[in-house]
Nucleic acid binder design. Structure first.
Lengths: 350, 350
DNA sequence: CTGAAAGCGCTTACAG
DNA sequence: CTGAAAGCGCTTACAG
């Protein structure tokens, strides 16, 4: 029934118990320095504390140690968008699970559209360290933070890559190479890789993976990579598909894109051309098909979002316990293949 | 490139600039007390601060004011469970949006299964105040917190209801009454309300709503409320349904339950009895049907989860700005009706 | 066995 | 115009 009464502090207990505030601190702190303490005093202090309903101030308790057991979570877009499908949910779930494991709480920095934005990155320092999710754009402040020695971990490769920012990300290179290898093992020798023109890092990783596997297996590299947004001259729907078939192409690999437009464009072209999948043409996507696609499961791979969240927390925790300035290995996580049903074996290819 | 160098503080700036730490604080704080300050000193301090890459310690900056602009979010179960459907997502979305609006960050308290549990509720005090989500069980610690004067808001009615804990919740009473009224307006005079035996608060609110509307419209109250978990003697599937029809029952109202078992049991009974819905029997649920139910949209109402999150944040913010101990109005939010297609007009009822 | 002191990094009256 | 002091609530050496 506290009616405006200020919450009790150690000094209050000390006064009532007739001891010094220091003694109160020692008793309440469980006497971890192991000083000698009369049992009578101990009990007396405990009793008064109980009676006053004392509870330590969480902020100042942690002041001396400068450790708050607080991990920051910074999202460049709202953490809980209306569209749950495209949300950070699985990543957040991984973060929460691992943080709980390590006894760390999470502080999520919110952004109101109105604010200057600069203030948010500052607030970040309330935490012991901070996770950054999905920050392709405007990552400059984050770099300054990292440069100042504040522990920072990116989930997803930072756009401007250098060794200053620790990160965890899916191993798109390996996963993309694996998809191509899968096609080769199924007998495909002539394929097309359809990708958007944008040179984002994930896009580069995927293309490198495709090229590496294609080279390794001695595939025909001419015309292998097709750059198009699905609506430009690079891809003319059914016409293009028919042309590729005439050239002997037996499989298509499609980049995973945010909008999913590319996948839909290609899928539509194939349908209009009247080519059955996978009987007439095998299909794979470097990731998953768009959420709004419904149809037979497309072969590709999974981005291990939950695991990414967990790995990021572990990495950040490791950073917290070591001297700043030491280089940190980025963590590349394997992307489990999705078998799907859109790849079919090719028997007789000359 | 800080290699282990400790982050600069005001004292460092003071030394280099040749002024006192106080002056540094005043300059950097934007001189909000309005003291006279030579422009030269100001510039000098700013320059040194910039050069050292000074950034204020977020914790200690807020120490004197005891305001952190941090709102706690305490969930009794994981905030991000594997099953996203039953998650707090919409509530969290509302919380995030409103917190952003008010310039407050969010701290989520994680729980590892291993921990004693008591520590978590303590950590809560790191925040200025705390939101509690879905806490039917073990709410005692929360009450102590509230009693100690710490600002607390429940989302959902606290089980043991008294005026000590402010809360926001859906107005199940009004919404349930509205459902019954809808049936009455469609001509139904003899209905059954099927509910679980558990006397939870939401269950009580719903039943009260049903009874209030039934009474108001002069419905036959005999046998109106049926208590069963769907598997006990209270409900014997098709047999029971057939019996009700024989008694002249034309509509069923079903409680919304966590598991959804009750709804499924009744729905199955109706199907087995071969009664068409809504032609032979109208159906309504006091909320929504279970997630795993697929079929024509069931008439009922929506729990405004997003709005609940927003309202809770506003209420907590209001609490933060007023003297503790003042009574607080709980906020009951309207639950928008779901029209659905399972209620049909009854013409000739005697 | 217990207490006075310094310190965590800042802010805000209050003296000069 | 600027600085010394007290204070936010605690912890941890260090003296007695």
């Amino acid at each position: 029934m506290s009616r405006g009464r200020r919450t009790p502090r150690q000094a209050d207990i000390a006064k009532i118990a007739g001891v010094s505030q220091t003694t109160v601190s020692v008793v309440l702190g469980g006497n971890r320095t192991g000083v000698r303490l009369s049992e009578r005093t101990r009990l007396r202090v405990l009793e008064v504390a109980e009676q006053l309903g004392y509870v330590p101030d969480q902020i100042t308790t942690r002041l001396p140690s400068h450790r708050n057991n607080l991990l920051g979570v910074y999202t460049f877009t709202p953490a809980f968008p209306a569209d749950i499908a495209g949300s950070y949910y699985p990543i957040l779930a991984g973060i929460e699970a691992e943080a709980a494991e390590l006894g760390q709480d999470l502080i999520m920095f919110t952004a109101s559209g109105a604010a200057p934005g600069d203030t948010r990155i500052r607030r970040t320092r309330l935490a012991d360290g901070c996770l950054f999710l999905g920050g392709q754009a405007s990552e400059e402040p984050m770099r300054e933070l990292a440069d100042s020695g504040f522990p920072v971990v990116c989930i997803g490769r930072p756009a401007r890559l250098d060794d200053r920012i620790p990160y965890v990300a899916g191993d798109y290179f390996a996963a993309s190479a694996e998809v191509v290898t899968r096609l080769v093992l199924a007998g495909h020798r002539k394929i097309r890789y359809v990708r958007e023109p944008e040179e984002t890092l994930p896009a580069c990783d995927r293309e490198r993976g495709v090229l590496a596997a294609a080279t390794e297996h001695g595939l025909d590299l001419r015309g292998l990579v097709v750059r198009t947004d699905g609506a430009d001259s690079g891809f003319a729907g059914a016409t293009t598909i028919t042309g590729w078939l005439a050239e002997g192409v037996t499989a298509l690999v499609i980049e995973e894109t945010d909008s999913g437009a590319l996948f839909h464009a290609v899928r539509r072209g194939v349908r209009v051309a009247g080519v059955p999948v996978p009987a007439g043409l095998s299909l794979a996507v470097l990731g998953r098909p768009p959420e709004d696609y419904s149809g037979p499961e497309v072969s590709g791979f999974e981005v291990p979002r939950r695991a990414l969240g967990q790995a990021a927390v572990r990495l950040l925790a490791a950073l917290l316990d070591q001297l700043p300035g030491l280089p940190v290995e980025p963590r590349l996580l394997a992307c489990p293949p999705i078998d799907g049903s859109t790849i079919m074996s090719v028997r007789n290819v000359t």
